[in-house]
């Protein structure tokens, strides 16, 4: 197994207290290898999104450790977590979360302005196949196009890890496949670790590794010996 991007130990997340406490994560131990495409599968409430949020530096855990490049995320201050997201992490969301007041190009620039080692925004947009529509505002683009801008924005900083929460959730399957293709390209060209949380089990076919979640813990980890391209996936 290659060197891990994340080393997760005893990760626990409890919402609420006492009898009304909800255990979203129950002591997860997990290693996520560097440079792989990892798909997290599981029913709603199984804890996969909670894990993504904590590992992505958006939320804090109740107990446990998450090590990234030798640092423990769970001990970081808010400012350090911001720094971590800014320098290392790219996010892609189900609802794109673009800034409506900025063009596609500017949405990408939003990130390249503050990143440590950014790509040229045009290159990032070219990578997602949007060379032509860089001066359009989100309102002038389709959902798939908006999602590709969101991916361009996420990858333009050349992140170490790309987190994708239901990236195709709001898209039809054709558009969704195109988006997955972009994620695969980013993984191959930039060597970024890509973590995808999804309901669509079929998408696991493109992953290097599939992690199944159930009841707040990892049920099993399957290494995919026979990867398929997004083109070949049906869902």
């Amino acid at each position: 197994m290659p060197e891990p991007a994340y080393r997760i130990a005893g990760l626990t997340k409890v919402y609420g207290e006492g009898r009304s406490a909800v255990h979203a994560l129950r002591g997860v131990d997990l290693e996520i290898p560097k440079g792989e495409i990892v798909v997290l599968l599981g029913p709603s409430g199984s804890g996969k999104s909670t894990l993504l949020n904590i590992v992505g530096g958006l939320d804090r855990c109740s107990a446990g450790t998450v090590h990234f490049q030798g640092q423990n995320l769970t001990e970081m201050t808010d400012a350090q977590l911001t720094r971590y997201r800014r320098d290392h992490i790219g996010f892609v969301f189900q609802f794109y979360n673009l800034m409506p007041s900025l063009t596609a190009h500017e949405n990408v620039e939003l990130v390249t302005e503050i990143a440590a080692n950014p790509m040229n925004p045009d290159d990032a947009l070219a990578m997602v196949g949007l060379r032509e529509r860089v001066d359009h505002f989100p309102a002038q683009m389709s959902g798939g196009e908006q999602q590709r801008v969101a991916i361009a924005r996420a990858v333009a900083k050349q992140p170490d890890v790309l987190f994708c929460d239901e990236p195709t959730g709001a898209l039809d399957s054709t558009t969704g496949r195109a988006v997955l293709q972009v994620l695969k390209d980013v993984n191959e060209k930039l060597g970024a670790t890509v973590l995808i949380v999804t309901h669509a089990a079929a998408q696991a076919a493109m992953a290097d590794r599939v992690i199944h979640f159930a009841d707040g813990n990892v049920r099993d980890v399957v290494v995919n010996r026979k990867k398929m391209t997004p083109e070949e996936i049906e869902w």
Binding site: D78, T82, R83, V111, I114, K157
Partner: peptide, 16 residues
């Protein structure tokens, strides 16, 4: 609120 949260997520500091 949502735009601001997105900015925070992609790495903008609280001040920014």
């Amino acid at each position: 609120a949502r735009d601001l949260a997105s900015l925070r997520v992609i790495g903008f500091t609280k001040g920014e």
